[in-house]
Design a protein around this nucleic acid. Structure first.
Lengths: 344, 344
DNA sequence: TTGAAAGCGGTACCAT
DNA sequence: ATGGTACCGCTTTCAA
């Protein structure tokens, strides 16, 4: 722990970080004055010569304020905590997340990505609370309890926001009901006269957050007209798709909702290679309206999902942070609609 | 700013965050003892009954330590700062970044994503330094100077690591030379006898970080045999691809390196729709070895890029943080090789 | 206009 | 086995 064992040794290696005290000393003023000048304090008049002296001293030392010290004193942070998704979430949501980061940054928040793999709700909430974030935006991979929300709030979080299906007492919920996607997709297949519908369920871990409700929505649509729904486990690889295509004949399905466009393209190609005609033998529909869908032949029908923009969500966060308001559920932020193309 | 204007008003809204002092009071011990117990201090024996009392008090109050206070005292953080990429970087790099986050998290670092859009190197370095990160991993979108690296180091950063083409004095550089990709791709086209080579250059802002060196590599390969290289601006949209395909005849090109697989598939489809035969009329090669490449017909040739895994990089960061070592350049971390398929 | 000093919430040394 | 206390770096009264 000793920084320089031998004072004689020429070890300029640890030229300790300059503090505001160092600046003050060099400028020949007090730390208070340094603070005033560097923060452009309005409530206090500092003479121009003094300002200059301070600025020059800070510049010369390469002074950089210490964020932790500042927020300790201030009693609050501008940290927005974003639990890192466990999984390679699709391109659609990646983009959304990226946008969100930028939007928050523009509003002068500091985005902290916090991986919480293997943590329980309790553990995660505690770990997050240590950072005293002013807001937490949870994707819903960690199941937050009302108690957890309480922990965060007591630790100073002015906004706890969940994105996803459910809603936690005490937290704002942006309900993005994925079952809507399955409902619309299968609804479209049914309209086309299909009655034995396959629904691809990704085997990738973590994706069930999306796939489960999508499947549920599919079931709901099918039940309404007494159609059959067959869950089809598949992973995002060619061999998995081929394997599924190989046993296709025995399944007797005439339509398939393939979770999203990526799985859809994979399956569609495998089905074609296995001799199935699309859409004659089997109708295929994906979701997310990715560009690839339009490049495939036949062009892929899809369910287009309208997500809130990152700016929208960031603005909402900011609003809640500024003047906390009773936790609400908002359902108007995700819309899903079918884009019928050639595949079904 | 007043928290509860009227003391009489039933406003239990601000039940201040419990501190270790609160825990101490409730347990009837000193703050020191609380600290010892909660951190399982080895150097000090605390009786079992006391431990229990402290634990129970902490539990009852829902005490959560304050990370900022802790690191202020400790004099260092476990923050690794990751400047947020400006752009929707491709799937390959997204995955890499995601992996990196997880790996760092597992090593108990706190990952802070910091968007630095519109900041100069100086500004960015200062802003980052405020957080006193123990390490900074820069993608190279912000051009760091040696002085900036100095700022970060003086602010306590034990490792400053750049990923990308160049290297900054004082920082570790993981050189991932994108020109290698262009070199290999065009090299392959040349081997196939093509002599007039188009190189797609994405119009999307920010991507030039990748596309410029890829183009340079392409040029290098072509010059060696006196072949012609034609830069082809294009954006990631169908219309842009169609526009390019429409003027294809006048270009007289017999091969094209399409930046990556996404642009390649877009262009390939547009070319096919415009009546070009692939690979007879024009050979197409992409990069990144995305799954879609294998699903297209003809199957897309590509340059496969081997990136270090997130764990590798995280381990490297950790090693440098533990025992800082002279800044080095490592060139062995990216490998590129051609996967010849049907498109060229 | 400026300075002295009290904390913010922890940790760790030194006593007891 | 515990408690007292100085300090980390910064902001912000309050006095001068």
């Amino acid at each position: 722990m000793s920084h320089s064992s031998k004072p004689g040794a020429a070890a300029p290696a640890a030229p300790a970080v300059p503090t505001s005290a160092d600046v003050a000393r060099l400028a020949g003023v007090s730390r208070a004055t340094v603070s005033y000048v560097l923060n452009n304090a309005e409530s206090v008049r500092i003479s121009e010569p003094t300002r200059r002296k301070v600025r020059e001293a800070a510049e010369e030392l390469g002074y950089v304020p210490h964020a932790a010290a500042r927020s300790l004193r201030a009693g609050h942070t501008r940290i927005v905590l974003l639990p890192t998704p466990h999984i390679p979430i699709g391109p659609l949501y990646s983009r959304f997340f990226n946008e969100l980061q930028w939007a928050l940054r523009r509003l002068d928040y500091t985005v902290v990505q916090y991986g919480s793999l293997g943590l329980s709700g309790d553990q995660a909430a505690r770990a997050w609370a240590e950072l005293r974030p002013v807001a937490v935006i949870s994707l819903g991979e960690i199941a937050l309890s009302a108690r957890n929300v309480g922990t965060l709030k007591r630790a100073g979080a002015r906004a706890v926001i969940t994105l996803g299906t459910g809603g936690v007492p005490g937290a704002h919920a942006l309900v993005m009901d994925q079952s809507e996607v399955g409902l619309r997709a299968v609804g479209h297949l049914l309209e086309g006269g299909r009655r034995r519908i396959g629904v691809v369920v990704p085997e990738e871990e973590g994706l069930d957050l999306f796939s489960a409700p999508r499947l549920a929505g599919a079931r709901r649509a099918a039940e309404a007209v007494g159609a059959h729904v067959e869950p089809l486990p598949m992973s995002y690889t060619e061999v998995s798709a081929e394997r599924l295509a190989a046993r296709w004949g025995g399944l007797g399905l005439d339509g398939v909702f393939a979770y999203n466009d990526e799985y859809a393209m994979l399956l569609m190609r495998a089905l074609q290679d296995a001799g199935q005609r699309i859409p004659e033998d089997v109708a295929v529909i994906g979701a997310d309206d990715l560009l690839i869908g339009r490049l495939l032949r036949p062009r892929l029908s899809t369910v287009q999902i309208e997500l809130p923009t990152g700016d929208t969500l960031a603005a909402l966060v900011d609003r809640v942070v500024r003047e906390p308001v009773e936790a609400q559920e908002r359902h108007d932020l995700m819309a899903a609609r079918v884009l019928a193309r050639e595949s079904g």
